[in-house]
Simulated scan of single mutants.
Amino acid sequence: MSHHDHYSAEEIAAALGQVRTIALVGASPKPDRPSYGVMRFLLSRGFRVFPVNPGQVGKEILGQRVYGQLADIPDPIDMVDVFRAPEFLSDVVDEALSLPKHPKLIWGQLSVRDDAAAAKAEREGVTVIMDRCPAIEIPRLGL
Rank of each mutant, 00 (worst) to 15 (best):
M1V: 14
H3V: 09
H4Q: 08
D5T: 14
H6Q: 11
H6W: 09
A9Q: 12
A9W: 07
E10V: 05
A13W: 05
A14P: 00
A15H: 09
A15P: 05
L16T: 01
Q18M: 11
T21Q: 08
I22F: 09
A23M: 10
L24D: 04
V25W: 02
G26I: 03
G26M: 02
S28E: 05
K30F: 00
D32Y: 12
D32M: 01
S35E: 01
S35P: 05
Y36A: 04
L42V: 07
L43P: 05
L43R: 08
S44D: 15
S44Q: 10
R45V: 08
R45T: 02
G46M: 06
F47K: 11
F47Q: 12
R48N: 08
R48C: 08
V49Y: 01
N53K: 03
P54G: 03
Q56T: 05
Q56Y: 10
Q56S: 11
V57I: 14
G58A: 11
K59P: 00
E60I: 02
I61M: 02
I61S: 04
L62A: 13
Y67S: 07
Q69R: 15
L70Y: 02
L70K: 10
A71I: 14
D75N: 06
I77L: 13
D78A: 07
D78E: 10
M79P: 04
V82A: 07
A85W: 08
A85H: 13
A85Q: 14
E87G: 03
F88V: 14
L89H: 06
S90D: 15
D91M: 07
V92L: 03
D94Q: 12
E95R: 12
A96P: 01
L97C: 06
S98W: 00
L105Y: 06
I106A: 04
G108H: 07
V112S: 01
V112P: 02
R113A: 15
R113K: 15
D114H: 03
D115C: 10
A116T: 08
A119S: 14
K120T: 11
A121D: 01
A121C: 09
E122A: 07
R123S: 04
V126L: 13
T127Y: 00
V128L: 13
M130N: 06
R132C: 01
C133D: 06
C133G: 05
I136E: 01
I136P: 07
E137T: 04
E137N: 01
P139E: 09
P139N: 07
G142Y: 09
L143Q: 06
